[in-house]
Every structure is written in structure tokens, then in C-alpha cells.
Design a protein around this nucleic acid. Structure first.
Length: 404
DNA sequence: CTTCCACAGGAACCAGCGGACC
DNA sequence: GGTCCGCTGGTTCCTGTGGAAG
């Protein structure tokens, strides 16, 4: 995202030599070794190894917080298994679906179909039709098929459940092929709310990925840093500092890697010879800022309007209520010549902004004075306002009404 | 103890769009 | 070219509710 062609050229010219291979620190890079995940690799491996004998492996459910290596381990084991299977001449394939990217039943099925080599249009077919095609494709050949549903909790409620139910029962419709499922989630509550029949079927085996502690994160970072950076460019303590920061946030390895990568980028940008702890501190701020701007920029129009209203009403020590926000929002809309949405919708928008971590909304009862949400900005206000101004010109309205 | 504010948030439904099918 | 989809971003109507004021 922050990759900049010119930057590379500049740094080469100015002779900054920080990164040997930056991509190794990217979150989607699957390394050859996964430190401190031997137990999980062994467990998953022994479950899936059934496939090599030509029998269907049990379905697996994998839990663990973000950045605990669930995806990496799963991909790694499946890749190795597929290699082994083709070596042994066992017909085995798998589909990997990220349910956050493909967050509807239709898209999940489309992804699965595509890994089977079917061509499925973006839209236009009914989900039932896609499902039928998958069944037909599976029946026409003889393979063991594993479906990975990563971030399964992102499937919409109701419909998603239906899909899961269907997938757990798909074997009943199949003759030649057997399908096993791997569900991955970081939301423990998701499993609790699952329909019992789906839960029991999907959870034939369960695997828990514990968070990494600071020391383990350090090992991971060391390993990657060796490949990613030139020797000696990391100042003493940088790795353990990244590890410590990420360990505080529930041992998220992705976070740790991001910090290290961005710190390196900052160092390179300013032509420093070494990556220092100060670079890491700035990296933390920059990552957060980028995230906020990215999220705000892609917000729908009225969500931006609502956010602008929140911005105007909240100062460091002042919170806003739903009612206040709604009337400010209406004023903004009128000023911009827009039709305003209902308060009901604004209430939902506030919840959405809360979930995105841009604002902080909690419902309180003020007794006689009713029940409301009190809202404050939780993201960096400067980042918010910068993103708002960029593609939507509330600039003048904001600065003239702003109480900052 | 009751009232009653100021909303929360569920349910159902809708318009309009892009896109594939036949 | 009509028909059928799913998705997004709404709408309408609604019942529910914590706790200060009376």
C-alpha cells in the first residue's frame, strides 16, 4: 500500500541500505518455518493426513486471535499436503476462501467453484445454482476436497449459517468425492451462537492457537529480519521493542511485523543508517493514521457527513449524544444541499463507525433525560479531518463551525 | 414506587443498479 | 431484451429500556 517506486529509486541513489527484501515482512508472506507453532502444525497435519490414505479427514475448527498464525499454518500444512499427495498420486485439492473478502454466501461459493476450475460470474446466478454446479463438478471427478473458510465469522448471519449447514451436509449429495471443511475464526463467541447441528459437524476437531508472548514474537521477528534487512541495520532493542508493543496487543504477530516493516521504511525514507526505537514509535503512529485515513476515505457519503458532525461536536473533553449529532448532521446536509437520512439510519451509521474504531459509542441512560449513545472520536482527529477534506469538501463548513 | 425521556435497535421491506442468463 | 439475481444503502414501524425526577 505504501509501496512507492520513486522511494526505491531515491533510496538507492542516496545509498540508504536498510531493506534486503521488504516483502518478507508483509502480512501475506508465508515463511518456510513457523516458529512456536510446531504443536499446531503437528495437530493439523495429523488430522489432514487422513487424506493421504484416501479417507476423508475430519472437519476442523481453528480458533485464535488475529496474528496468531492460523492462516499461515493452515496454508503451510495444506501446501505441504498437496505436494505429498501429488507425489503419492492421491487426488487431493483444496479451496481457500477468505470470508472477509468474500463475505456473502454467493461469493464464498463462487470462490470454491473457481478453485475447482469452474468459471462463475460475479453476479447473476442464484446461490443455489452455483451450489448445484459445485456438486456436479465434484461428482464428475474423484478427489478429496478440502475447503478452508478463513475468518468465517464474517459470513453474514442467517444466510451464512444456511451456507455452513449446506456445506457440512454436502457429502450426502456426493458420490465419488468427499469434502472436508476447515473453519478459521478469531471470534470465540461466533462458535457459541452457531446452530448446534452446524457446530457439531464443523467442530469434529478443534484447534486453538494461543497468542504469542513477547519472547516468541521476538523469535519470529528475528527470523524474518534476518532475511528482510541488511545485517547490522537494526539498532539494539528494536526487535524486542516491536515484540513488546505487539505483545501488549494480544500477541499479534502481524502487528509486530507491520511495525518493523514501517519502521524500516521510515528509516529508509530519511536516509538513516539504522532503524531505531524512535522509528518504531513513529511507525506505530503512522500505521494508525494510515488506517484511519483509509477507512474514512472509503466511507459512504452519509457516513462521512455523520462523522463530520461528530468531529464538530466533540472536543477533547466533550462528548456528543445521538440527538445532537443528528441535528448537526442535518445542518451539514442542508448546507451541502443533500437530503438527510432518518435518525434510525444515523444510529446504525454510528454503530458502524464504532466498529471501525473511528469513534467510540456507548449507550448510557441518563434517567429522566432518556437513554442515548454518547459518542466521542477515538481516532486521531487530524487524520479524520484530512481524510474528510480530501474527497468531499466540507472543509469550510468544518473549520467555520469547529470549536477547536 | 412509578413515570417517562430519548433514544436503542429489531423486523420487514424497498429502489435502483450492474450483470448474467436464455 | 426480458428476467432473474444479489448488494448497498436506505425507509417505516415498531417495541424495549435504565434510571433520575417526581
Amino acid at each position: 500500500m505504501r509501496h512507492d517506486v520513486l522511494e526505491d529509486i531515491f533510496s538507492r541513489v542516496t545509498g540508504a541500505r536498510i531493506f534486503k527484501n521488504r516483502d518478507i515482512l508483509r502480512p501475506d508472506y508465508v515463511p518456510d518455518t513457523l516458529p512456536h507453532r510446531d504443536d499446531q502444525i503437528r495437530a493439523l497435519g495429523s488430522i489432514l493426513a487422513q487424506a493421504l490414505k484416501g479417507t476423508k479427514p475430519n472437519n476442523v475448527f481453528i480458533y485464535g486471535l488475529t496474528g496468531t498464525g492460523k492462516t499461515a499454518v493452515t496454508k503451510y500444512v495444506l501446501k505441504r499436503l498437496a505436494e505429498k499427495a501429488s507425489e503419492l498420486g492421491v487426488p487431493f485439492t483444496y479451496a481457500y476462501v477468505n470470508c472477509r473478502q468474500s463475505d456473502t454466501a454467493y461469493r464464498v461459493l463462487a470462490d470454491i467453484a473457481e478453485s475447482l476450475g469452474l468459471r462463475i460470474p460475479f453476479t447473476g446466478l442464484s446461490t443455489a445454482e452455483v451450489y448445484r454446479r459445485i456438486v456436479r463438478a465434484l461428482n464428475s471427478r474423484r478427489i478429496l476436497f478440502t475447503i478452508v473458510l478463513d475468518e468465517i465469522d464474517f459470513l453474514e448471519k442467517g444466510k451464512g449459517e444456511n451456507l455452513l449447514y449446506k456445506l457440512t451436509r454436502i457429502n450426502e449429495e456426493l458420490t465419488a468425492t468427499q469434502v472436508s471443511l476447515i473453519g478459521i475464526t478469531n471470534d470465540v463467541k461466533f462458535v457459541e451462537n452457531l446452530e448446534p447441528r452446524v457446530k457439531s459437524s464443523l467442530g469434529e476437531e478443534e484447534l486453538v492457537f494461543p497468542p504469542y508472548n513477547a519472547l516468541q514474537l521476538e523469535d519470529i521477528l528475528m527470523e524474518r529480519a534476518r532475511e528482510a534487512f541488511y545485517p547490522g541495520v537494526l539498532e539494539e532493542g528494536v526487535i524486542s521493542y516491536c515484540a513488546a508493543l505487539a505483545a501488549k496487543e494480544h500477541g499479534d504477530a502481524r502487528r509486530a511485523l507491520d511495525l518493523l516493516r514501517v519502521a524500516g521504511e521510515i528509516a529508509e525514507r530519511e536516509g538513516a543508517e539504522k532503524v531505531t526505537i524512535n522509528h518504531v514509535q513513529r511507525a506505530r503512529i503512522e500505521i494508525e493514521r494510515d488506517r484511519v485515513e483509509e477507512v474514512v476515505k472509503t466511507l459512504p457519503l452519509h457516513a462521512k457527513m455523520v462523522l463530520a458532525a461528530v468531529y464538530i461536536l466533540t472536543a477533547p473533553n466533550r462528548n456528543a449524544t445521538t440527538g445532537e449529532i443528528y441535528s448537526t448532521y442535518k445542518t451539514l446536509c442542508r448546507a451541502a444541499g443533500l437530503e438527510e437520512v432518518t435518525q434510525r439510519r444515523v444510529s446504525d451509521i454510528l454503530n458502524e463507525l464504532d466498529m471501525l474504531g473511528i469513534i467510540n459509542a456507548r449507550v448510557v441512560s441518563r434517567g429522566r433525560y432518556g437513554k442515548t449513545k454518547i459518542v466521542k472520536l477515538s481516532a486521531d482527529p487530524d487524520a479524520v479531518v484530512r481524510a474528510l477534506k480530501e474527497d468531499f469538501r466540507v472543509g469550510p463548513a468544518l473549520s467555520s463551525t469547529s470549536n477547536r
